[in-house]
């Protein structure tokens, strides 16, 4: 008879085999291989330039026809607390007290990942990564499961609780429909007085970001945040201080979030097809050594 330990060993062996077949078989889809569409647009955010005027929040509210804010957009009292994006505000500016260098502001919004975790976590396929780099969603198919909220490494998608009949997740869409699709910069980029944000081709922005660091090494930390993080993002950041100090996780993995579960998920179909056969086999083996079939039937009947 197979004991429990042998059985588990067998399962493990099956799983490993399945995983290795899976990985070898689809090298083209291996983790981190997709580095974004070639003509993907992006935004380079230079945190050293932001003065916290909140113009971007006002422009976003106007462009996306979001509900009226609780406070005017020139009210600086909002900086008392750290805010996050909501269904009424796709972008928010937060203030960070930084040692030695008084204050920095950082605008937060969707970073439009090359391999978005929200997209891969969505089982109704509501999300799309467009060739321009925008991560957009179809609210008509959203069922409100909020998996994307959990999956997003930047805590961006927000949930609209206000409408019970049409539940939907809401987030920055890179002004895709009204602007980026037509080659225009997002509303926040256009209104920014300090040109904190530079809109352009992602490939050009990566060079530009590194050039800024090279030509001013005393001003910037030597890192372009978003170039490699979670497989690369369309929005990238330059900062004068460690990114941890302005609310960005400095130890974010370079592999896309999907890589964490891709190999495991590859084994699931294997398990689903192998386990029934395996258990049936075990059952047959286990019952074969027992007395007569009649007895077995009798036992089953007893149990019921």
């Amino acid at each position: 008879m197979i004991d429990r330990r042998d059985f588990l060993k067998g399962c493990l062996a099956c799983g490993v085999t399945a995983a290795s077949i899976g990985v070898a078989g689809k090298n083209a889809f291996a983790a981190g291989s997709f580095e974004g569409y070639p003509d993907s647009m992006g935004v380079l955010v230079d945190l050293t330039r932001c003065v916290g005027c909140r113009s971007c929040e006002a422009a976003c509210n106007d462009e996306q026809n979001l509900p009226d804010p609780d406070l005017p957009f020139d009210d600086k009292s909002v900086f008392k607390e750290q805010r996050r994006t909501t269904d009424k505000a796709y972008t928010v500016v937060n203030k960070y007290e930084v040692a030695n260098k008084d204050t920095l502001f950082r605008k937060m919004q969707c970073n439009h990942c090359n391999e978005p975790a929200c997209l891969t976590s969505c089982f109704v396929n509501a999300y799309t990564k467009t060739k321009e780099g925008a991560v957009i969603y179809n609210s008509k198919v959203c069922v409100g499961c909020r998996n994307c909220m959990i999956a997003c490494p930047f805590n961006i998608p927000a949930y609209s609780y206000s409408s019970p009949t049409n539940p939907m997740v809401k987030k920055c869409i890179f002004c895709y429909e009204t602007r980026v699709k037509n080659g225009r910069p997002p509303a926040c980029v256009e209104i920014c007085p300090q040109q904190v944000m530079t809109f352009g081709h992602r490939a050009d922005l990566i060079k530009m970001g590194h050039d800024r660091i090279t030509s001013n090494p005393a001003k910037y930390v030597d890192k372009l945040y978003g170039e490699k993080e979670v497989g690369g993002t369309s929005w990238m950041y330059l900062s004068s201080v460690d990114f941890d100090k302005v609310g960005l996780d400095n130890h974010m993995q370079n592999e896309p979030i999907i890589s964490n579960v891709k190999d495991f998920l590859g084994t699931v179909p294997m398990v689903l097809s192998i386990w029934p056969a395996l258990f049936t086999g075990i059952h047959l083996l286990a019952t074969k050594n027992k007395g007569g079939h009649g007895d077995h039937d009798h036992e089953e009947g007893d149990e019921q």
Binding site: P69, D70, P72, F73
Partner: peptide, 16 residues
């Protein structure tokens, strides 16, 4: 208008 300020400020009859 875009800043929702001045004459376009949100009505604050009760504390938000």
């Amino acid at each position: 208008k875009i800043f929702h300020s001045g004459s376009y400020a949100p009505k604050t009859t009760d504390t938000p």
